[in-house]
Design a binder for these strands. Sequence first.
DNA 1: TATTTTTGCTTGCAAATTGCAAGTTCAAAG
DNA 2: CTTTGAACTTGCAATTTGCAAGCAAAAATA
Lengths: 137, 137
Amino acid sequence: MKEKKKRSNCPVSCSLDIWGDKWSLLIVRDLMFSKQCTYGDFLKSEEKIATNILASRLQTLEENRIITKSDHPDSKAKVLYKLTQKGIDLLPIMIEINLWAEKYFTIPADQKAILKEVKKDKETFIKTAKNDLKKMI
Amino acid sequence: MKEKKKRSNCPVSCSLDIWGDKWSLLIVRDLMFSKQCTYGDFLKSEEKIATNILASRLQTLEENRIITKSDHPDSKAKVLYKLTQKGIDLLPIMIEINLWAEKYFTIPADQKAILKEVKKDKETFIKTAKNDLKKMI
DNA sequence: TATTTTTGCTTGCAAATTGCAAGTTCAAAG
DNA sequence: CTTTGAACTTGCAATTTGCAAGCAAAAATA
């Protein structure tokens, strides 16, 4: 496990050291939507991540205990990736990103529908969603 | 202004297209703390951003209307950078990043003190902080 | 049982980005 | 008029990205 040097002790800087790139939070997003994904599932996402980048990001996220690998119940050839508690705790950040983006971009209708639910009662939405994800650990 | 192609219409992806890197949110962080910064102020930050990277990020953030350049009242040689409303609206994301980091990293005492205030009443903290920033526009 | 397909990667390589150091330009101070 | 300061720009090596192809093990198919 290669320990990368922190740029500073600033909470924002420390966070970005781990997932501050164009791809990591998309992996986390997929896991928040799907609860668990295979390597192939990530590749199916709209943004078309390259296989080597995916492997690299999954490794970094695993090293930093944001995600875990586990055996797929159906097949030894498949691997299941899941969020850890640390990964689940990124949910509030993910939600605020969505709310910000909703204000400044045109986003898909189905996403808007979810955000409508979020805005009704953010606290409850997060609590429920976190619990749902926790069940999968 | 070079229009970069969006990877998808996903709100998270669109957001990361703009500020999904190791430096952009540190610039935003500095502006949230200091309200307004000069080029030199950014360079003084602990993380030691390179001058060319700083110039490049400032340009991208300006192109995407997260920040604006304005004249410094004291000198024509200086430039003031400020957050726009779009930039100010990143505050909830910034706060959630801080709260997440506080849970999983050891962070400086002064930062912890601020987060204690945040946790007392998040809504009010954000509203007040946003108003303070808005005054500077 | 033999062969093909699926799955999760790894490898090679060109292109783009980053990071460091050293300019450059214009305003302001001495 | 010379020096300093502020905001960049430039050059270049090192790292990272992105695309395509390859590969080994497991599973499905013939």
